[in-house]
């Protein structure tokens, strides 16, 4: 059971690095979607018996994170008609190195946190921290609005991983609520991306500085 879970978390952590290293927008979206699907399967692995609710949430997660959100993002990308290059603020190699350093730091940190005995074996906390750090790195290091959404998605995946720690005490319904929020957020961002493109002729968020007081 734990092995399967750790395998999935390891996969997700690997995907973090892929996301940091990729230079093309469509592949970034694909990575984020893949990570979302990996995370979606996890409740099924954790739960001892398959309850209807857990299955429903898993399916919804996979569907929304893996299909709906990427579709929305691709649509936004198409309608805004932007070029597929990522224009990094932090280069790909430094990003990768920072991401790897963050991952090591997360594992070290997780081993030093006062956790419950049953969580010592699993990579949940480490994976969660690593994903949050990777998401933040993406948010800082990429300037396009859509890549920021992807960074945000990965960050949220980290939070989701942390939430899995509490899966037995917090109903998955909460997770369902977060999922809904996320979808709406991406939906709204998709619209905003279009507007930014029209107003600034670019999706570079650095140009938004002219809006400051």
């Amino acid at each position: 059971m734990n092995d399967w879970l750790n395998l999935l978390i390891g996969l997700a952590m690997g995907l973090n690095l892929v996301a940091l290293g990729t230079s093309r927008l469509p592949s970034l979206i694909r990575v984020a979607a893949l990570q979302g699907m990996v995370l979606g399967i996890m409740p099924l692995v954790i739960e001892h018996e398959l309850r209807l609710l857990a299955v429903a949430v898993a399916i919804a997660t996979v569907a929304i994170k893996g299909l709906v959100i990427p579709a929305l993002l691709r649509r936004a990308m198409r309608t805004a008609n932007i070029d597929r290059d990522l224009h990094p603020l932090i280069g790909f190699l430094p990003s990768l190195l920072l991401g790897a350093a963050g991952m090591i730091g997360a594992v070290v940190l997780a081993s030093r946190l006062p956790l419950l005995p049953e969580h010592h074996e699993s990579l949940l906390v480490a994976g969660s921290l690593a994903s949050v750090l990777a998401g933040l790195l993406l948010l800082i290091g990429r300037s396009k609005a859509i890549s920021q959404v992807c960074g945000y998605l990965i960050l949220e995946n980290g939070i989701y991983l942390f939430g899995l720690l509490l899966i037995h005490s917090v109903p998955l319904l909460v997770e369902g609520g977060i999922l809904l929020d996320l979808t709406v957020a991406v939906f709204v961002t998709g619209i905003i991306v279009d507007r930014i493109q029209r107003a600034f002729d670019s999706l570079d968020t650095r140009k938004l500085t002219v809006l400051r007081e």
């Binding site: 933040l136 790195l137 800082i140 300037s143 920021q148 500085t209 400051r212």
Partner: peptide, 15 residues
């Protein structure tokens, strides 16, 4: 600075 990335760096450093 008005730059989104700069603000995110603040958040990151704080975190």
């Amino acid at each position: 600075a008005g730059s989104l990335q700069a603000y995110l760096i603040y958040v990151f450093i704080t975190l």
